[in-house]
């Protein structure tokens, strides 16, 4: 896989992303002071996140008892299903292996 040209391009791409991230940090820390416009843009971005993203959802859960109850009920059904699915997968794997060996 490591000798495939497309994978080499992928490695170059990912490496570039990390070098870019490091340069983002340097530019942000060593750059000029934050202007009022930038502060306002950041604040409005944060406010937007409160309304439209999971950040706001986690805040609204605190005040919404119906949503809290719904989440706890859904979790009560989903978590056992995940564990049952996991156990069934493991059992199938173990039985298949013992059948193949036998």
């Amino acid at each position: 896989m490591m000798h495939k040209p497309w994978f080499k391009i992928f490695i170059w791409f990912i490496s570039t992303v990390f070098f870019l991230s490091a340069s983002f940090c340097l530019i942000a820390e060593l750059g000029p002071n934050v202007s009022e416009q930038q502060s306002m843009a950041y604040m409005s971005g944060m406010m937007n996140a409160m309304h439209n993203s999971l950040m706001g959802l986690s805040m609204s859960i605190e005040n919404d008892s119906y949503l809290k109850k719904l989440i706890s009920e859904v979790s009560a059904i989903t978590l056992p299903l995940i564990f049952i699915g996991f156990a069934a997968g493991m059992l199938t794997r173990v039985f298949k292996r013992s059948r193949n060996n036998g």
Partner: peptide, 24 residues
């Protein structure tokens, strides 16, 4: 890394054009 850096503060917001909702 990129989405996290965009949320660090006003100095870093330009990384994702101050679109904190998408970054979050």
């Amino acid at each position: 890394t990129i989405s996290g850096l965009a949320m660090v503060g006003p100095r870093y917001g330009w990384i994702m054009n101050y679109d904190i909702a998408s970054a979050d």
